[in-house]
């Protein structure tokens, strides 16, 4: 099994390193050829406007959407990745290009500017001990559709969710040494129907 990290811009090497530590083959994905070879795809943190524009320009938006809708590709978006995966962005710039995969509405920079960025630990799904997370100009999930399972919340709102083969966190698990979220995603990739 192979998992890709969308390699347009952002925390690409950090995700690749985490995946390797989880014992899976991890590759950067910049084009449709490499995309077609992976079972899962991580959309890293970065700037959502930049990544959205460039995946559109280089023809990746359509194939990611098609394969994830068919269920042959698992997708995990962190921070900017969450904004790109959301069907609705409440305060994005006009016509911001996006993937729109998940039935969620997110708010960009929901905690404020960089000065207000923070790290904290919290309950994540059924993990036994609190999960450390780094929140950098992070988005929040404002509303989620019936098919979406909320995996973690802070007092301000939801920060992690799953919808079938789709996983998203508004924080950065790749900036800590904790591998549990990546392992959780690897399990999702393994459970995909082989097509």
């Amino acid at each position: 099994m192979k998992i890709g990290v969308l390699s347009v811009q952002g925390a690409v090497s950090e995700h690749l390193k985490h995946l390797a530590l989880c014992g899976v083959e991890a590759v950067p994905v910049k084009d449709t050829t490499n995309l077609s070879r992976v079972n899962g795809l991580i959309i890293p943190g970065g700037e959502s406007t930049t990544i959205g524009k460039l995946i559109e320009a280089f023809g990746l938006t359509g194939p990611i959407r098609e394969r994830s809708e068919k269920g042959s590709l698992a997708v995990f978006g962190t921070c900017a990745g969450m904004i790109l995966m959301a069907q609705e962005v409440s305060d994005g710039i006009a016509r911001q290009p996006k993937l729109g995969l998940m039935d969620i509405r997110v708010k960009r920079n929901a905690f404020g500017r960089q000065r207000e960025s923070f790290e904290t630990a919290f309950k994540f799904n059924s993990f036994e001990t609190p999960l450390p997370g780094v929140f950098i100009r992070s988005p929040l999930i404002e509303t989620a559709g019936p098919g979406v399972e909320i995996l973690a919340s802070l007092e301000e709102g939801s920060v992690a969710a799953r919808q079938g083969n789709l996983l998203t966190t508004s924080f950065h698990p790749e900036l800590t040494d904790d591998l549990r979220v990546h392992q959780y995603f690897v399990e999702i990739c393994k459970s995909l129907k082989q097509s």
Binding site: Q9, S13, S117, F118, T120
Partner: peptide, 21 residues
């Protein structure tokens, strides 16, 4: 508890800019 302005948070912000202009 939320910790703001840690070195990890500051450095992390720059990590999100990698590969960019």
């Amino acid at each position: 508890m939320k910790e703001q302005g840690t070195f990890r948070v500051k450095k992390g912000m720059a990590q999100m800019q990698k590969g960019g202009v």
